[in-house]
Design a protein around this nucleic acid. Structure first.
Lengths: 162, 162
DNA sequence: TATTGTTATACTCTATAACTATA
DNA sequence: TATAGTTATAGAGTATAACAATA
């Protein structure tokens, strides 16, 4: 079975040209928000490139990984966890369903809800995709020592979990 | 002169409900990309709220601040610095021009280019807005010691400057 | 009466192609 | 021939309102 590999275009952030290098960014670089956004965009760019072989965007990967580690999770829980609005989750789940990666089954106790479960293909893809994400993150975290990498994640969690 | 204050809606990330709290996010939270994106979104949310009094989104603020610290900067330099594509910058600059915050003047040496300069109103707004951003960042960085805050920014810069 | 999943829809953000004026 | 600024436009992402089925 062949599956079309979706491609994701993304602005190729112009490499710092002579002009850009001359720009004073001192103030912006003193801001947590600016630095966090720039770092996040850098990681996303690498993610898009390396994960294109699976046809998974960050949101698709996060969704599948959550279903893998929380079989039977509902759309509502997914929305709350990933910060996605319910109407926007419908197509995401429907598309992954069409690709044969997950299934919607009746919820055991709540007749309104549907529990999400990975298919065999879905489990295989998540296993491989999670390994690729680890490799890709090893690459972007290369300038950091293992200790610094842990510190960085700990500090980031302090920001969004307060 | 009255100026309409633009409002920016943003998804009010559902606070961790009982349901969401039960979701296992261990794997995602072990990823740099996930943590960086979540932290960036948290800061943006606070930014949108506190900066709405100026009618400035993050991109507007970054643009104005760069012009303030780099008088005469060109659109092309802004694009390279902020990772914006030239066609998308046109309306941003035009709108700030219409609001009387900046002006486009002929470039002294390049007839094709236009140098951007803040107006008196623009300089006043940037001064106040930068102070507000400092305050707002003090808030989001409250769970961190001053040393941790510096370490966090240093590590983030290592990620996107490699 | 509230919640789950859904449809329809609108608005914003990001991207590509192509034009003009100038280098 | 290449670059700065621009126009038009398409696609992706994110938002609100409202509905049927179920709690």
């Amino acid at each position: 079975m062949t599956r079309r590999i979706r491609t994701f275009s993304r602005q190729t952030a112009d490499l710092p040209s002579r002009e850009a290098a001359a720009v004073d960014t001192t103030f912006l670089e003193s801001l947590l928000g600016y630095n966090a956004r720039r770092a996040a965009l850098t990681i996303i760019e690498v993610f898009l490139d390396r994960m294109s072989i699976y046809g998974l965007r960050p949101v698709d990967f996060s969704l599948l990984s959550l279903v893998a580690h929380n079989p039977g999770i509902t759309s509502r829980q997914l929305c709350a966890t990933l910060g996605i609005l319910p109407p926007n989750l419908v197509k995401l789940v429907a598309d992954l369903d069409k690709r044969g990666l997950l299934q919607r089954k009746p919820h055991p106790t709540d007749g309104r809800a549907l529990g999400l479960h990975l298919t065999v293909d879905g489990r295989k893809m998540v296993r491989e995709a999670e390994a690729t994400v680890r490799e890709l993150e090893d690459g972007v975290a290369a300038p950091l020592t293992p200790e610094e990498r842990e510190i960085l994640m700990t500090l980031l969690r302090k920001i969004y979990k307060q």
